[in-house]
Design a protein around this nucleic acid. Structure first.
Lengths: 353, 353
DNA sequence: CGTTAGCACTCTCGACCATAGAGTGCTAAC
DNA sequence: GTTAGCACTCTATGGTCGAGAGTGCTAACG
């Protein structure tokens, strides 16, 4: 009897508040919620019979389901979606929590790796879910600095600092026995050639290099390694994924029997999936929720992600977010993710000034 | 009727081979093994009744147990221990596999991080267990090189390269607006002061610095940050843990119901436990197995670790190893861990030459 | 004296069944 | 439109039963 409710787009206020109540209760208890429990615990001024009618309407609107005839209601993905849309704008972290998080960032050493870890830890703890953070990564990287440190006669450590903040270190086998002094000279030359360049630029610049003489050939060899490293960095869709709170996911009762859990972990270890997802939000600047089956692949149909990108789209962007069961405290999740992504924005802006 | 068997120390050959058969079968099937199955599948030239007698002896020697009266036998931790001792020396990886692993290491970029990842991946795949690798870390680190890269007027990236191969990057807020040129000068000065030094040495050297003048105060500020970073590096028991194959652990039937699994993951996230364990093997240079309850803490009583250290004890040491259910293919595990740790040894020796 | 066949005994596991409880959907009255 | 009442449905729980697996013991055997 879909009288009151026609489409998910327009719900009368009472239906809406009952939907909220169902979601709230289900998020809390993880068991299907019945009409009696709602009336009892949410002081709606009506009887359970009335609530039953409305629940039935919400069900035919596709926002709730029934595991079986005699069980209570459970939100569908569409139900969560409706809920999320309705709260998205108002989900803002209370100032107290904002302050606490800021404080924690103040405590830590000013190394970007520490920030990513901390961001993941904070998100995980605040939401009792898993959290994911990726470093900001540019589409095409620019070299800022090149350094060579002698390790032994024929081996050196090549260090590349990118404008976007990342640092890469690789070992280089040298064509001839070489002193630190010559390495330093080569590094200065390369620095002059490469600084500010992208992989494509650098390729052209390197072609014009005079590779005669002992230093020349050294510059040539190392230059090629730099190029390879920059290309390598460009090619990987995500640099690294910092995660925390996987235990929280294990604790969720819906992942009791380990099959679903296994699928989730498998999807997480598989970076190409995350990479694709991240592409789709990179630069949008807004918090986005991916609920259950919306995620596409089957292995993620039991979880939701709440993600936001940070950074300047024209420079480098990264992603922060939270992963948990579809039965997730979305308001809290959206609030914390929004705030933390804003914070990461500030940090990145600071670095790329 | 512990006739044939008195202590775990001396077993007659037949008992020994039956113990092996039980372990082999149990590792394979994960179900208690009965006398009939043994006779049938292992062509022992005796009847099941005889085998039963021996099984009973092995049980009173503490090497096997009974889940309940009418079930087959299951190895105890002591049983595995006996088995491990008896094969430890002979567990050597076949040359073909050695070659394949070497080949894979040859494929990868010469960056130490990649090696750790690869080592973990190889160990996990070869044993169908989880694998753990930590970078080689010195007890007290020596600075090899210091570099400063300007990010903005008041912000610079400080890069510290350690003799032992690690690289650390932190951001430094500068006391005054500073050009790259001055940063470079400061870096050269600091490099002169710090190179080859430990935290303690550097502390003394820094105290004697002339911190007057603009460069002087810059050197002072950055010097303190270097010191802090070096101390920080010294203080952390493990730099980082690379792991892979956690999914394999989830797949083991003994971790069906997730409680045990949860405990294992919790123990893994908790670094202090791993740190302690690693301390106890660091520098021994041998492959060591920690079987079930031998691990001490309850949360690890269902798993075994097969670990080896690598590196020069006087320099830096790291750990490689494998983590799986106590029901683990120890021969394979010991073989691969031994080989990979040897490989890591070579790589480290190469770097620290 | 070690080995073996035979057998009674024990315990688990899955199937089956009955019952209690939760919650719905419908009807009829307000 | 709301509500009380009630029949109905489905799950979850617990108990019983039989089959099957495997042991331990006893007595016979070489």
């Amino acid at each position: 009897m879909a009288r009151r409710v026609r489409t998910a787009g327009s719900l009368d206020p009472r239906s809406q508040s009952i939907l909220r109540a169902v979601i709230e209760e289900y998020v809390d208890t993880a068991t299907p919620v019945g009409s009696a429990a709602l009336v009892e615990r949410y002081g709606l001024g009506v009887s359970s019979a009335t609530v039953r009618n409305i629940l039935s309407d919400l069900e035919s609107a596709g926002l709730l389901t029934h595991p079986h005839t005699s069980a209570g209601r459970v939100p569908t993905d569409a139900g969560y979606r409706y809920f999320v849309e309705s709260i998205a704008d108002s989900a803002i972290l209370p100032p107290v929590e904002q302050l606490m998080i800021r404080h924690q960032f103040g405590q830590v050493q000013h190394a970007s790796e520490q920030w990513f870890r901390l961001a993941a830890t904070i998100l995980a703890a605040a939401n009792r879910t898993a959290a994911i953070v990726t470093p900001a990564k540019p589409r095409t990287a620019h070299v800022r600095r090149i350094d060579l440190v002698s390790i032994s006669e024929r081996l050196a450590s090549l260090i590349i600092v990118f404008r976007e903040g990342a640092v890469r270190q690789v070992l280089v086998t040298l064509p001839d026995a070489t002193e630190q002094q010559d390495l330093t000279r080569a590094a200065v030359i390369l620095d002059g050639i490469m600084a500010g360049r992208t992989a494509a630029d650098a390729d052209r610049a390197l072609a014009r290099i005079d590779s005669s003489g002992p230093i020349g050939s050294l510059v040539d060899v190392v230059g090629q390694r730099v190029l390879a490293a920059v290309r390598d960095y460009d090619a990987s869709p995500i640099e690294e994924v910092f995660s925390d709170g996987l235990l929280h996911v294990m604790d969720a009762p819906e992942f009791d029997r380990s099959e679903k859990l296994r699928r989730v972990f498998a999807a997480l270890e598989n970076r190409s999936y995350l990479g694709g997802l991240f592409d789709s939000i990179a630069g949008s600047g807004r918090v986005q929720a991916f609920i259950g089956a919306e995620n596409g692949p089957d292995e993620m149909r039991d979880v939701s992600l709440v993600l936001a990108s940070y950074g300047e789209p024209s420079r480098a962007v990264g992603v922060v977010g939270v992963l948990g069961p579809t039965r997730m405290a979305y308001r809290q999740a959206i609030g914390t993710v929004r705030f933390v992504s804003g914070l990461m924005n500030e940090l990145v802006a600071h670095i790329q000034a």
